[in-house]
């Protein structure tokens, strides 16, 4: 009997309802965390932050589900919400408790929206809560250490309508089902899928958003425009290991490569590249420094050769066609080749 009860507790934890169950116990924590770390913006609505008690603003944000809201709070958003409200010493559970507190203040019910359609699981967890109430921390401990998006199980997903990002990823008719949801970009190391969340050292690692918030945005890669960040001196990466004053001698020479088909020609700027790199990084191993000596194709680049040694790994990815293919072809040159073909089709 005892083991069955504990099994129910575990199942309850699995379905994620224990998070909201736990949140009720943590009402005090939520308020305390809010006052310490969130009130600065959320009390007055600074920088677009939804105000405490403003039902309209909060219900708009709750529409995507409480799990999405948790995630935005933990990972931050490009709209100005810093990861964990800027207080990275907070645990995920504390941040979620603060979110629950703010949602409740606006008349929202984090529990009902947390697991839509998951009433059965919630009920079983609630039923099991009493015998184990002597040590509530244990119940909450397992799910609380997980990122919010991981809490719903596949079984719950099957029963529940879509709402949380994890469910949307599994829903076959979900919009943009293969893309990472915008709110989930640049997550902290513990939630990024390659770091081991069980590593005791993980919280010493810097969350990317803490750095990226101050930098110009881009549409791909790290979603940071590194060249602009360097140009505006928002970052000062050293050119020499030991000498902070050393400066590169940038080479201002554009190479135009005329390309086949209708794509605009490629303008290769030496300047932006020599700000970061030494000549010997590319010449002569990757590119022979001689006009016409280098066969470059998109196929090679996609496979990680030529420009693809960096672009598609660390420099902006190949999805940003126009950043390289930037010079419109001369009208006469393209018209001689393209017009007869277009007319022949008519």
């Amino acid at each position: 009997m005892r083991s069955r009860i504990t099994l129910y507790i575990t199942l309850g934890a699995l379905t994620g309802s224990a998070v909201s169950l736990h949140a009720q116990d943590r009402g005090g924590t939520g308020k305390a965390v809010y006052e310490k770390s969130c009130a600065l913006c959320h009390a007055a609505g600074i920088a677009g932050a939804p105000k405490l008690g403003d039902a309209g603003e909060w219900s708009a944000r709750l529409r995507a589900g409480i799990a999405t809201l948790y995630r935005s709070a933990v990972a931050g958003t490009p709209n100005g919400m810093p990861a964990k409200g800027g207080n990275l010493s907070l645990s995920g559970a504390e941040v979620r408790a603060a979110v629950d507190y703010m949602v409740r203040s606006a008349g929202g019910a984090p529990k009902s929206s947390a697991v839509p359609g998951g009433k059965r699981a919630t009920a079983s967890a609630r039923g099991a809560a009493k015998p184990a109430a002597g040590n509530p921390a244990q119940i909450g401990a397992a799910p609380a250490s997980k990122p919010a998006r991981e809490t719903p199980t596949p079984t719950v997903v099957a029963a529940a309508p879509s709402g949380t990002p994890a469910q949307a990823a599994i829903d076959p008719n979900a919009f943009n089902r293969l893309l990472a949801p915008p709110g989930g970009r640049n997550p902290p190391p513990a939630e990024d899928g390659i770091h081991d969340p069980g590593n005791p050292g993980i919280h010493a690692l810097q969350p990317p958003l803490e750095s990226f918030q101050r930098l110009p945005r881009a549409n791909a890669g790290n979603r940071v425009n590194w060249v602009a960040a360097l140009g505006k001196k928002q970052i000062q990466p050293r050119w020499d290991l030991g000498d902070p004053q050393a400066e590169p001698s940038a080479m201002d020479l554009n190479i135009v490569r005329e390309v086949k088909g209708s794509m605009p020609d490629v303008v290769y700027p030496h300047r932006q590249h020599t700000e970061w790199l030494d000549c010997s990084n590319c010449h002569p191993a990757i590119f022979v420094p001689q006009k016409g000596a280098n066969q470059i194709s998109m196929a090679a680049i996609l496979l990680g050769q030529k420009c693809g040694v960096c672009h598609g790994k660390v420099a902006f990815p190949v999805s940003e066609c126009r950043l390289c293919h930037s010079r419109k072809k001369d009208a006469p040159a393209s018209s001689t080749a393209a017009v007869p073909a277009a007319e022949a089709r008519k």
């Binding site: 083991s3 934890a13 799910p143 997980k146 199980t153 990823a169 990317p208 990815p317």
Partner: peptide
Amino acid sequence: ARAYAALGAAIVALTLVPGGARRALAEY
């Protein structure tokens, strides 16, 4: 109870991490 909680956490980790994070959100 603790053992079951740990078991539950392990199951969460095993079943959800491959599904939930099938595309790791690691930095570019």
